[in-house]
Structure formats: C-alpha cells, structure tokens
C-alpha cells in the first residue's frame, strides 16, 4: 500500500497526525502498565489480574472513538480502554495495590474491575458475559431519558457462548438500542480455542440471527478499529440500533497471572502470534504516513516509563483501607443496623 493510501486512512476518518501520535502513546502506555503490573504480581505486590497484551489497538482504538457522555460496560481485561478513557495511571496503580485512595473500588476489588461514575464506566463483573445485560440496560436508560448517549460493551469470544449474550443482543436489536457490541476475539477463552467454542467461521455471523449489523475488523489495526467503532456509534446515535463489531486479536500472555498457558498452547504458536503486534503494526503505518522518526518511540517509551514509575511510587506510599471501614463504599446507602428492617 502506498503512503498516500495510508495517509488517507486516518485522514479520511478525520484524524490528525496528533491523534495518531496520541493513539500510539496510549498503546505504549497500556503495554508499559501491563508489563509493570505483571512484574509486580510476580513480586507478590499485586493480586491476580488479566493482561491485555496484544489487544492494545482494539482497546485504545475503540475507546478513542467514544464521546464523553457515552457509557462503557467492560470485562476484566480492559486496561487499555480505561487508559484511553482518561483514567490516570496513578488511579490504576492505587487500585492494583488496593489502596484507600483508589477511586475505582477503594481497594476492595480484584484488580482490573474498573468502575467510574466520572468516566461513565460501569463496574466490571467477574462472571463472563454479565456486563452484556448491564450495558443493554444502560443503553435503554439513555433512550428512556431521551439522552444522545451510546453504550459500548466490551467482551471476549468466550462470552458470546453465554445466555446473557443472547438475551442482551436480542433485546438491544428488538428495541433498537444505542449499543456497540465490541467483541475482542483473542482466540482463547482461558484454555478453550475458537474451534472448540463456536461452529460458525466468524462471530459476526451471529449478528444476522439478531437482525443486527455485524462488522469484522483487524483488531491489530488501531485506525481500522477506530473507524468501525465510530461508524457503529453513528448508527447508535441516529436510532438505527446496535452493531456487533468483532476485532480479531491475539492474546500474547496467559489468561491471567494465575494461568499457565504452556499446558495448552504450543510455544511456537505463541511465538508466531507475537509477530502480530499491534504496536509494530502502527509503527509501520506511521512510517509510511511520514508520522514517524526515531524520537517518537524513544519519547513515548520514556514518558510512559516515567508515568508508571511515578504511579508505582504513589501507590506504594498510599495507605491501605482501614479494617474498621470494611463495609464502607460497598452500598450506596449503608444500613447501620441490620435488624432495623426486620419488621
């Protein structure tokens, strides 16, 4: 593909060179955060979490397309999404360290279950696929209140086999709700590969069963993901109903820090998957589009490393929640005396 074509891809979507640099930085930052959290887990400082390595483009590209009023229903593997949404790295690390100043859950949840009223992120669920029903409910609320908001729901290939997916997709389609179903197909549901998960070739084929538009995109290509998400959002805002976007990605690490994929994944296959790197992909695009010089990578790397180092120090120095406050921040309204309501 010629340089002109590459340029036309981001420019055709109304993105400037600064946007592409910003996308690149957010992807580098996501990877730096992910790497540091993984190392801290191995040091015993951070509890179990799910790495998003290999899915940076799918996450950053889609979240970058959102408007501030839109809502997000996420799974537990979306560090890149919350970074692109504007969560500070300090807040991410305060959460990972379970500190009292974590604005997500005040240190009360397993890492990665982000939630923020300010950023319109519904708190992530651990059960696979339940956020699909939450997200459709959120979109319904927007319609009910007459607001021009969409809800994007993030989930993986494994979640598409759950009943919640089916009920959510049907309901969203029947009522033409402003939903973007953003499936990051990283080829593995823990240890179950795609071939043992569904009998269709692409999950987008499922969309036809709901009378819904389905879009298949290269989840390693941040520009393509951005474009597909923005088109889906436009459909959502204009009342045309939900869209199913399948972003094909690779999962470059084990399912979580507690999983060892050597038991079910051949090393040579993992090595082959590493060649499909969304960052290298974007770098090649930027070179072709004359948006690259050696300073870009160096500056991004240094800036991300500094942010992550600062956030680590910040979290290390922050206090843990007090045992006496175990029950605060759990319910919106706290019943101080459980026997009060017995009548």
């Amino acid at each position: 593909m010629s340089a002109e074509n590459h340029i036309s891809r981001h420019e055709a979507l109304g993105l400037h060179g600064e946007d592409v640099h910003e996308l690149y930085y957010q992807m580098v930052l996501t990877r730096t955060v992910d790497d540091r959290l993984w190392n801290l887990n191995r040091q015993g400082k951070v509890l179990a979490f799910a790495s998003c390595l290999g899915q940076e483009a799918a996450q950053v590209g889609s979240a970058y397309a959102l408007a501030p009023d839109d809502w997000l229903a996420i799974s537990y593997r979306e560090h890149g999404v919350v970074i692109a949404r504007g969560m500070s790295v300090r807040d991410i690390f305060a959460y990972a360290y379970h500190r009292d100043n974590d604005p997500n859950t005040r240190g009360r949840q397993i890492p990665g279950h982000y939630g923020s009223q300010k950023l319109h992120i519904l708190t992530a669920s651990s059960p696979v696929g339940t956020q699909l029903a939450h997200g459709v409910g959120s979109a319904w609320a927007s319609v009910y209140e007459g607001k021009r908001e969409a809800t994007i729901i993030y989930f993986g290939d494994g979640a598409t086999s759950t009943g919640d997916f089916h009920a959510a997709a049907n309901f969203a389609a029947v009522h033409k709700l402003p939903v973007v179903f953003l499936c990051q197909n990283n080829e593995w549901a823990i240890s179950v590969p795609n071939t043992l998960q569904y009998a269709v070739k692409h999950l987008t084929e499922r969309a036809a069963g709901y009378g819904m538009m389905g879009t298949l995109v290269d989840g390693l290509d941040v520009i393509e993901v951005f474009g597909a998400t923005r088109a889906a959002l436009a459909r959502a805002y204009s009342g045309e109903g939900p869209t199913f976007v399948e972003a094909k990605c690779k999962r470059l690490r084990s399912h979580t820090t507690e999983d060892d994929d050597r038991r079910y994944r051949r090393r040579e296959d993992v090595e082959a998957d590493r060649a499909h790197d969304p960052l290298a992909n974007l770098e090649a695009y930027m070179k072709a589009a004359s948006l690259w010089d050696e300073g870009v990578a160096r500056q991004a790397g240094e800036k991300a490393a500094a942010e992550v180092e600062d956030a680590t120090q910040y979290a290390e120095a922050s206090p843990l929640p007090k045992p006496s406050e175990t029950l605060t921040h759990i319910f919106a309204e706290v019943k101080t005396d459980a026997h009060q309501n017995d009548d």
């Binding site: 389609a173 029947v174 009998a199 269709v200 084929e205 036809a208 069963g209 009378g211």
Partner: peptide, 18 residues
C-alpha cells in the same frame, strides 16, 4: 415481532451453522 428482531426462528439457525 415484539420479542424478536428476527421473527423467523429458522433464520436464526445460520448463527450456529445449523
């Protein structure tokens, strides 16, 4: 039609390759 955006159940089978 009020409960299913695809009112034909047979049409849903393609989503499972059935």
């Amino acid at each position: 039609e009020r409960a299913s955006a695809v009112p034909s159940v047979a049409a849903k089978a393609c989503a499972y390759n059935i």
